[in-house]
Design a protein around this nucleic acid. Sequence first.
DNA 1: CTAGGGTGTTACCGGTCTGTAACTTTTAGA
DNA 2: TCTAAAAGTTACAGACCGGTAACACCCTAG
Lengths: 193, 193
Amino acid sequence: MTDGVAERSRPRDRILETAQDMFHKHGIKGVGVDAITEAAGTNKMTLYRHFESKDDLVIECLRATAAKASRIWDEFEARHPGDKLAQLHAWVQKASELLSVDSRGCDMANAAVELTEADHPARRVIKELKEAQREKLVALCRDAGIGQAELLADTLSLLLEGARVSMQSVGAEGPSAQFVRMAESLIASFRAR
Amino acid sequence: MTDGVAERSRPRDRILETAQDMFHKHGIKGVGVDAITEAAGTNKMTLYRHFESKDDLVIECLRATAAKASRIWDEFEARHPGDKLAQLHAWVQKASELLSVDSRGCDMANAAVELTEADHPARRVIKELKEAQREKLVALCRDAGIGQAELLADTLSLLLEGARVSMQSVGAEGPSAQFVRMAESLIASFRAR
DNA sequence: CTAGGGTGTTACCGGTCTGTAACTTTTAGA
DNA sequence: TCTAAAAGTTACAGACCGGTAACACCCTAG
């Protein structure tokens, strides 16, 4: 029973990719290391040779997810070089695609919900990564010539965060279905000020 | 080691109240039935005489939480009888209080994040309760004389949902700090249309 | 006073979890 | 080809989990 993920790469990469996928689908506490290694076509000992602990694996998964997200921002720049406003619209578009394709929301937000201990090692990583994303969106809004860039960026952030969690409780036909309309009219109204 | 919750009520009530509190603070998968019954000053057998299973207890907790939230809506009506617009502002005010007092977000949304199995018995309850809350907010917006009541209600919903989950990943100084400003200017702009 | 329901106590079941030890097999590089 | 590192295998420890059985207790309604 070979698994679909990463047919023949190195065990560490397979584990990381499989863990990302399974944590995303079933939650962190909803999947054990045995299940991960089996799905990755390897075994528990190999996992613990590459990662100090399950928490360490979780952190590496979050970093990998953030790195993927970061690559999407590079796409925006590549597709609309210099045109920051077009990149902002691309961000909205990409966000809506995310909402229509996947219903399990943001891995970092979900992890923050699951890992309730205040001193959990993953929490500071989550905060760092989320703050970095915020900075990016603020910069994009500012460079797009919007006056209250921070406020627009934060509003868009909350809308998307809300949409991604709302999907998980009421589904895609709920409030999140209006995300694009909300975001675009927000941008328009901020530009008009 | 007596617990602070509900000194001497009936065991079922103590369990329900304690479970609500502990599920809220530590998550559903983060607390076991033994810990709940011990904190409630009773034992596991008594819990299972009143609740079919842990899942059943979770569902009852969610219903109880929703009932508490429902009582807040009665307060709005009592404090601003007939004045739906004032009640809408009161909703914003109450939401911001929630954000400043508690950093663990919405129990239903958190449960939806934690309970990933598509057929988990709690999921349909979560959906029902969330949809009922949505209906209430839509009705409030409509009765307050706002044209696109559904869109405003959904936007406010997503903003609050986003703020409550954002607090859990980046804290109260993040985007959620601007919630009131966002909500109020949204209401203003919808009223101006 | 007595009967019975609600409650408390203890022990247990089978399962799952993270993490490790000891050993064998495979793989890749010089 | 030889060697050394990486990976696989098996077994296990120790803890926790949800849930149940059997039995003792207490408190109140009749």
